[in-house]
Amino acid sequence: MTWLVTLLGAALVMAILRDMFHTIWHPTRHGGLSRLVMTGMWRLSSRLSARWRAAGLAGPLGMVCVVAVWALTVALGWAVVYWPHMPEGFSYSSGLVPAEHAGPDDALYVSLVTLATLGLGDIAPAAGWLRVVGPMEALVGFALLSATVAWILGIYPALARRRALALRLAHVRGGVTSQALDSQGGAALLNGLASAVSVITVDFLQYAESYYFYDGDENISLPRQILHAASLTEQAMNSHHPDVRLSATMLRRALDDLAAILDELFLHTGATTAGVFASYALAHGDRMGRP
C-alpha cells in the first residue's frame, strides 16, 4: 500500500508535466487540464454582469487559475510521494519530534518548500532514493516557473498580432474605396492581409488559450472586424485586375483556414466560413455585454 500511494503521487506529477508540455511546448496539441480551466472561466464570465465581462478578465484570470492548479497539484503529488515514508525516510532538526511531524500536512509542507527551492532544512529527505527525488522536485518547480514565463511571453505577442490585424481591417474598412482596391496597391494590400490572417491561424493552433481573451475596443476586436475581411474578399474577386483576383483568392483561402481552426477547436458549428465568423463575433459579443 505504501508504494501504491507513492505511485499515485508520481502519477499526479506526471499528469501535470504532460499538461504543461502539451499546453506550451507541443504546438499541435493542447493540455486537457489547462483547456478545461480556461473554458470554465470563459463560460463563467458569460453568467456574470456585463461590467465584469467588459473588463475582459476571463483570459488573464484563467491563466492565473491554470498556473495555480499546476503548482498546487504538483505540490500535492510530491506530498503523496513523501507521506508514506515519513518519518523514517526523513531527517529532522533537533527542535522537532519526528513522530509529531509525519502527517499529510507535514508532507505537503516539505513538498512546497522543495518545490519553491527554499531549502529550509528542518525536514529533509534522508533515505537514498528520497535524496534523489527531492532535487527532482526542485527541478520541476524551476520548470513550472519557466513554463509560466514562456506561456506569458507566447500568448501576449499572439494577442498583439491579433489586435493589430483587427485594427488594420478597421482602417481598411474606413479608408479603401473600390477604385483603390482595383489596383496593384490593392493586390499588395490583400496579400498583406492574407499573410496576417495565416499568422493568426497559427497563433490559434499554438496558443489556443488566446481565444479566451477579450479584445477590448471594437477597432481592435478581431471577432468584430474579420467579417469585413470576408466581404472585402468577395468584392476583390470581381476585380478586373488579375493580380487583385489572385490576391483575393489567397486571402479567401487564408480566411477559410482560420474559420476551420476556430470551428474545430472552439465553436463546433459545422457552418460555412461566413457562418463561423458570425458565431465567433456573437460568442465574443456576449462577453462584451452586447447582443
Results as ranks from 00 to 15, higher is better:
residue 1 M to Q: 08
residue 4 L to D: 08
residue 9 G to I: 00
residue 10 A to K: 01
residue 14 M to Y: 06
residue 16 I to E: 06
residue 17 L to A: 08
residue 18 R to M: 11
residue 19 D to A: 00
residue 21 F to I: 11
residue 24 I to E: 04
residue 27 P to K: 10
residue 32 G to Q: 12
residue 34 S to P: 07
residue 36 L to G: 09
residue 38 M to S: 08
residue 40 G to F: 00
residue 41 M to K: 10
residue 43 R to F: 07
residue 47 R to P: 00
residue 48 L to P: 06
residue 50 A to T: 12
residue 51 R to V: 05
residue 52 W to Y: 12
residue 53 R to A: 03
residue 54 A to L: 10
residue 55 A to C: 07
residue 57 L to Q: 04
residue 58 A to Q: 01
residue 59 G to R: 02
residue 60 P to K: 02
residue 67 V to L: 07
residue 68 A to F: 13
residue 70 W to Q: 09
residue 71 A to N: 10
residue 71 A to W: 06
residue 78 W to M: 13
residue 79 A to R: 03
residue 81 V to Y: 05
residue 86 M to E: 03
residue 86 M to P: 02
residue 89 G to R: 04
residue 93 S to R: 10
residue 95 G to W: 10
residue 95 G to E: 08
residue 98 P to H: 03
residue 99 A to S: 15
residue 104 P to V: 14
residue 104 P to S: 14
residue 105 D to Y: 11
residue 106 D to K: 12
residue 107 A to F: 08
residue 108 L to P: 01
residue 111 S to N: 07
residue 113 V to G: 06
residue 117 T to N: 15
residue 119 G to M: 04
residue 120 L to K: 13
residue 121 G to A: 08
residue 124 A to E: 09
residue 127 A to K: 13
residue 130 L to H: 08
residue 130 L to I: 13
residue 131 R to S: 08
residue 133 V to A: 14
residue 133 V to M: 12
residue 134 G to Y: 13
residue 139 L to H: 04
residue 141 G to P: 09
residue 143 A to W: 06
residue 145 L to I: 05
residue 147 A to P: 01
residue 148 T to A: 09
residue 148 T to P: 02
residue 157 P to F: 00
residue 163 R to Q: 12
residue 167 L to K: 15
residue 172 V to K: 06
residue 173 R to K: 15
residue 173 R to Y: 10
residue 180 A to P: 09
residue 183 S to R: 12
residue 185 G to H: 09
residue 185 G to L: 14
residue 185 G to D: 14
residue 186 G to C: 01
residue 188 A to Q: 14
residue 193 L to V: 02
residue 194 A to T: 13
residue 198 S to P: 08
residue 198 S to T: 14
residue 201 T to H: 03
residue 201 T to A: 07
residue 203 D to A: 07
residue 203 D to K: 09
residue 205 L to H: 05
residue 206 Q to T: 14
residue 207 Y to V: 08
residue 207 Y to G: 05
residue 209 E to C: 10
residue 214 Y to L: 15
residue 216 G to A: 11
residue 217 D to L: 15
residue 217 D to G: 10
residue 218 E to N: 11
residue 223 P to I: 04
residue 224 R to A: 09
residue 225 Q to V: 10
residue 225 Q to E: 13
residue 225 Q to L: 03
residue 226 I to P: 04
residue 228 H to V: 13
residue 232 L to N: 14
residue 235 Q to K: 15
residue 239 S to L: 11
residue 245 R to E: 07
residue 249 T to L: 13
residue 256 D to F: 03
residue 256 D to T: 11
residue 258 L to T: 04
residue 259 A to Y: 05
residue 259 A to P: 07
residue 259 A to L: 09
residue 263 D to H: 01
residue 264 E to C: 09
residue 269 T to H: 07
residue 269 T to M: 12
residue 275 G to D: 00
residue 278 A to D: 12
residue 279 S to H: 07
residue 281 A to L: 04
residue 283 A to L: 15
residue 284 H to L: 13
residue 286 D to F: 04
residue 287 R to W: 13
